[in-house]
Design a protein around this nucleic acid. Structure first.
Lengths: 350, 350
DNA sequence: TTGTAAGCGTTATCAA
DNA sequence: TTGATAACGCTTACAA
């Protein structure tokens, strides 16, 4: 069992026969140091396996070399893949810049501001990234006002810089697609108004109808809360309408999946008897039957881009632009793959 | 914009009219300090919103107050939910103990040992938790030998302490269940040998057959790599067997889902014509058709328990027991819900 | 019970 | 180009 070696910069200085400050210059690749001296010092550092103490460095530089990612508490409307994918993007971008990533849970305690502010005041973090923040999370705005580097991943909140998916444009594309399939009566399963994504999809849906020359129909609108169960319930209401809508847009995939279950219980097969579109491109979307047409927003890309902007902000002290939009992509699968006319002929999909 | 206040222990000392060390004693709730003095100091700290600099504290105490979680690089055999659930458990347990959690990606660079060791040598982390480590990740053993607190979540590796699900017992229960449904010819879709979970399920499957008095049949064994596609392929091979097996055990859910797809293409409905069991209880398992019978191992519990043991290790300097087993649970759903006899009568499930 | 002073391991300033 | 030396903000003997 190798004994706990605890090398410091003094040891290196002694071994190299130079002073501590010379070692420091070598470590930090300063132009003030002679190449020969630097090489000699670095060689010794390599040999003995010395690593500078991050705490001591941080104490002097007043930085931590870490950013925090705030995630919603478990049980939130965003399911795991959403968080996991954005975290992957954040991790990759941060690691590339040699930053560490710490995770924080957005408990009420944290959001009340106390704990969030503390992370900065204790110099534990250099910046903060909020994934899946709600429009009610105003603690982020307070951090921003206090001059802290704070960014949002796929949500909007006051003047806090954000990287978001262009769900308005994407949902317009959904309606356009349905309209091009000759659908005139498009039902709508709307989610909650607390997420930016939801609000943008609502905006896009209405805009899309307008562009297609279709009216927004309250009688074809039902409400859910982003869960599978709420989609099932909402679809139940829509099935009472006469005549039935020929297409349904559910604001997210889980509600769409719930709606599909209700449709099938009612003897209607999505994609053959009725068109169904969701949103998110959750992993599940391609496995349900029939596979779900949906709107893909790459959470990985959103997370990575947000991390890059945050790190640049930390480095340069210059805040990024308030909004960075990333494209969404309409993923067409069997749940609305066929034209309405051919669907009516009862053609088997898949 | 409130200006950047940067309070130090000196400011508090001055405001409270005491010395810096007295403030320190108050912060750390020392018994050496007078209650009145402590109250006075803490009141001022509260009022002005002072927070001790974590770097300075860490420099003195030689601890970071953070643990690292090492996760496999994206694209690994474990899908996102696996990581996301265990991370949730780890986060909850660590937060409860007022520890922070930093994420590291197990890149080759990291695993080579250099980066992993550096995290400790730079005093950035007090302990390390590896989720989904492979049996080839021997850098963890080297860390352990160097006296670092290191634990495994649901894998085994040398003498590194681990918290794992009892997949042997669980898989025995699967075979027992199938045998009790009168299945005698149980086909087997085996995954890779690089995961502990896989090896334990293999062990449990063989043990289960033995207990049921059934032979292990090479001719009913096919191989996959834990992916949906590989399950699909493996099932294709098994469908060539005459007579067909009446039941199939796939080592994990994704392979089982692939197998189900192949069965259906072949005109066989899992749960009616053939019994199918997977493993993991992935979120997807309950949404596929028919819903999949599977073996649940709570990754949340495994993560939380591992974090608790790691933190205790850090606190007490006493390593935990080498193995902590957590129970698995057989989740019976439609894919093998009926007895073979009734299934043969063609009864509609669900 | 409180205060003084000596570190902790770096970086930065300023002479040499 | 290099080497003393003074911060950085805190904890902890040791003294008072």
């Amino acid at each position: 069992m190798p004994r706990e070696k605890k090398l410091t910069i003094r040891d290196i200085a002694r071994l190299a026969g130079v002073s501590r400050s010379t070692v420091s210059l070598a470590i930090n690749d300063s132009p003030l140091i002679n190449d020969r001296t630097k090489a000699k010092v670095l060689k010794i550092i390599e040999e003995v396996g010395y690593r500078p103490n991050a705490m001591a460095r941080g104490l002097v530089s007043d930085t931590s070399g870490a950013i925090s990612v705030v995630v919603p508490p478990v049980g939130h409307v965003f399911s795991d893949w959403y968080f996991a994918e954005s975290l992957s993007g954040i991790l990759d971008a941060a690691s590339a810049a040699d930053f560490r990533v710490a995770i924080e849970i957005a408990t009420e305690d944290f959001k009340s501001g106390r704990r969030a502010v503390q992370q900065f005041e204790e110099r534990r973090t250099d910046g903060l990234l909020a994934v899946g923040a709600l429009v009610t999370d105003d603690y982020l705005e307070r951090l921003l006002e206090a001059g802290r580097p704070v960014m949002l991943v796929n949500s909007e909140l006051g003047r806090v810089p954000a990287v978001i998916a262009d769900n308005v444009e994407g949902t317009v594309a959904i309606v356009h697609h349905l309209a091009s399939l000759r659908h005139r009566a498009i039902a709508y399963i709307k989610g909650l108004d607390i997420t930016t994504t939801g609000r943008h999809r609502d905006e896009g849906f209405r805009k899309g109808l307008q562009l297609a020359g279709l009216p927004f129909r309250d009688d074809l609108t039902a409400f859910g809360d982003f869960t599978e169960a709420s989609g099932y319930e909402a679809m139940g209401q829509l099935l009472d309408r006469k005549p039935l809508p020929t297409a349904v847009f559910a604001m997210n995939d889980m509600m769409a999946i719930g709606a599909a279950r209700r449709m099938k219980e009612h003897g209607l097969l999505p994609g053959r008897d009725i068109a169904l579109v969701g949103g998110d491109d959750a992993p599940l979307a391609r496995y349900v039957e029939p596979p779900l047409t949906t709107l893909r927003q790459s959470m990985y890309d959103l997370g990575a881009e947000a991390a890059r902007l945050l790190l640049k902000w930390i480095r340069t002290k210059q805040p990024p632009p308030p909004r960075t939009l990333l494209h969404t992509e309409l993923i067409i699968r069997e749940s609305c793959g066929a034209r309405l006319a051919s669907a009516r002929r009862g053609g088997q999909l898949r």
